[in-house]
Amino acid sequence: MKVKTMTEPAIQTENLVKSYGSVEVIRNLSLDVPRAQFSAIVGKSGSGKSTLLGLISGLETPDAGRVLLNGTDIFALDDKGMAETRRRQIGIVFQSFNLVPALSALENVLLPVVFDDRLSKAEYEVRAHDLLSRVGMEARASHRPGALSGGEQQRVAIARALINQPAILLADEPTGNLDETTAAGVFDLLTGLTRDIGTTLLMVTHDMDIAAKADRVFEMKNGKVEQ
C-alpha cells in the first residue's frame, strides 16, 4: 500500500495538453499542488486556468498527459472508478453555484452521497445540517435555490462540496458572481472550513487580493504556468 506523505503533492499534472479545435488552451503543462494548503491559479481570461481545473477534476479530457490525485492517474480509471474518486476525494465549487433547482438546500447538500454507504443516511443528514449551520444556512435548509440569494446559494454549494470531507477542494472563480462583501464572506468560509479539515484547496481566481492570501500562486499565461 502506498503511504501518502505531507510532502507528496496532492495534485500533479504531467505534460497536459488540451486543444479546442485549432486553439491549444493547455500546452504541455506540468504542475505540483502542495497538500493541505491553499493554492491559487490566476491569469487573464482565456489563459486556460478554468480548463486546467476541469482537467484536474476529470470532467474535461486531455489530449495528452496525466493528472494524478494523491498519486492516482485519474484518466486510467473507468467511469465507476472516476466517479468514486470524485465522490470521495474531490469537492468542487463553481462560479455559477450549480445547485439543482428542484431540491431544497439540505437535499442539494446530500446529493453527492445518495449512493455512498460509508455512513448511514441519518449520519449524513446530521453532517449536512452541521455543514449548513457552519455556512450560516441552517435556517434556510428547506428552501429551494430559487428562493436563495447568490451568496446563499454559494454557501450551500460549499456545504455540498464538503459533505464527503474531500481531500481536495477545487473552486472555480467561487466569488466571481458575488458582490464584494458577500465574496469576502464566502472566501473566508472556504478557506476556514478547508483549513479545519486539512483539505487541499485549489482555487481559480482573477482577483489578485484573494490570490495574495494563498500559500501558493500559479500564474497561467498562454496555456502554461508560471510559479
Partner: peptide
C-alpha cells in the same frame, strides 16, 4: 458536451 464545458467559469 463534456461536463466541464457546461459547469466551468470560462
Amino acid at each position: 458536451a463534456q461536463p466541464w464545458t457546461l459547469l466551468g467559469a470560462e
